[in-house]
């Protein structure tokens, strides 16, 4: 890229980034001004509060989505997944490899179409199955969309709990699955690859394109994510707003409350086959929480929906037997249920 274009890019980032942060910071006042003064809705009316809530939530979440997606893109430019594989195969980790694989699952943007090449690439590089599972558990569970949605809807504390417990679950889950000696349940062709696997000796090669020249496509990717989930965010918030008005207070408290022990497994088992974009499900879950479902049960349900799904199972079928998929899903569901009880206990 020419020097002129680079300078223009830096100036643009230096202007837009602080502007977005300011907008985020003063958003409540701006939205109040818009709904009550400009649209002339009365601040006490039901319609006024709903419109205000809708605009505030949507804009807030979109800003967060854009910033977090771009940030993850930057992190990834410095730490691509190839580099992790290189670390995992060449360095002695003393058990920490499960944690690192899980952590990286969290910071790499998740794309379901990439999960199979990644799985095979790990197996091919001689990385143990348990470590690969650690990555595979956290990758869909903690991703930029889920984090941005959680941050926008539930705040910092719940987001930290969600992300930390997701990484913890990947670490422990990968470790335990690794102990089961599950290699024999891989598909035949993956077994062959594994037999031929070799420890990578080649040094990890960095990108040749300088970071600044990759920045435009990183920002564009961040914007693409926002555009792609926009419709889910809008639908989720609209359903949430509608439920706020029509579902009676404490509606769910009756049968999903914390003192009914069977509520947790029910919520998780209902969530596993479901697949919903984190963007659409979080605003709905917020209403569940507002109407009496304990936050722990809600987080567990969300983990089951986002982390495990039938489409994912059919994808994994390319590399695993149904038995292995069953063991994988069963173990993770159990973990989510236990985590859910723990959340309800400590929150």
């Amino acid at each position: 890229m020419e020097e002129k274009k680079r300078i223009r890019l830096i100036v643009a980032v230096a202007v837009v980034l602080p502007a977005l942060i300011c907008l985020y910071y003063f958003l409540p006042q701006i939205v109040d001004l818009f709904t009550y003064d400009l649209l002339g809705l009365s601040s006490g009316s039901h319609l006024g509060t709903s419109v205000n809530f809708f605009f505030y939530d949507t804009v807030k979440i979109l800003i967060l989505l854009f910033l977090i997606s771009s940030l993850m893109g930057v992190v990834n430019a410095y730490f691509p997944i190839d580099r992790l594989r290189n670390y995992l195969t060449t360095k002695k980790m003393y058990g920490l490899q499960y944690f690192f694989a899980s952590l990286f699952g969290a910071i790499t943007p998740f794309c379901s179409c990439s999960s199979i090449p990644l799985f095979i690439g790990f197996v091919k590089g001689g990385i143990p199955l348990g470590v690969t599972f650690a990555f595979l558990i956290t990758s869909p569970l903690v991703n930029e969309v889920a984090v941005a949605m959680f941050l926008g809807v539930f705040g910092v504390k719940a987001t930290l709990i969600y992300a930390a417990s997701g990484i913890f679950m990947g670490t422990v889950g990968g470790f335990i699955l690794g102990k089961f000696k599950l290699e024999r349940y891989l598909s035949d062709w993956v077994k062959q690859i594994q037999a031929q696997s070799e420890i990578e000796t080649e040094k990890w090669e960095g990108e040749k394109t300088p970071f600044i020249d990759r920045l435009p496509s990183i920002i564009r990717d961040g914007w693409d994510i926002v555009r792609k989930v926009l419709v889910y965010v809008l639908i989720g918030i609209a359903i949430g707003a509608a439920m706020h008005g029509y579902v009676p207070e404490d509606f769910f408290a009756g049968y999903l409350s914390a003192d009914r022990w069977y509520a947790m497994p029910l919520a998780v088992l209902a969530g596993v086959p479901m697949y919903a974009n984190a963007a659409g499900i979080v605003p709905v879950i917020q209403v569940f929480v507002a109407k009496g479902v304990p936050l722990g049960t809600a987080i567990a349900f969300m983990m089951a929906v986002v982390g495990l799904s039938l489409p994912e199972a059919t994808l994994l079928k390319k590399v695993m037997t149904w038995k292995l998929i069953g063991i994988f899903f069963g173990t993770i569901s159990l973990f989510i249920i236990l985590l859910g009880y723990l959340f309800n206990f400590i929150l």
């Binding site: 090449p117 990644l118 690439g121 790990f122 091919k124 690859i193």
Partner: peptide, 10 residues
């Protein structure tokens, strides 16, 4: 065939 190129993400 993709996997013969030793890539991790598409």
């Amino acid at each position: 065939e993709i996997m013969t190129y030793n890539i991790l993400s598409t």
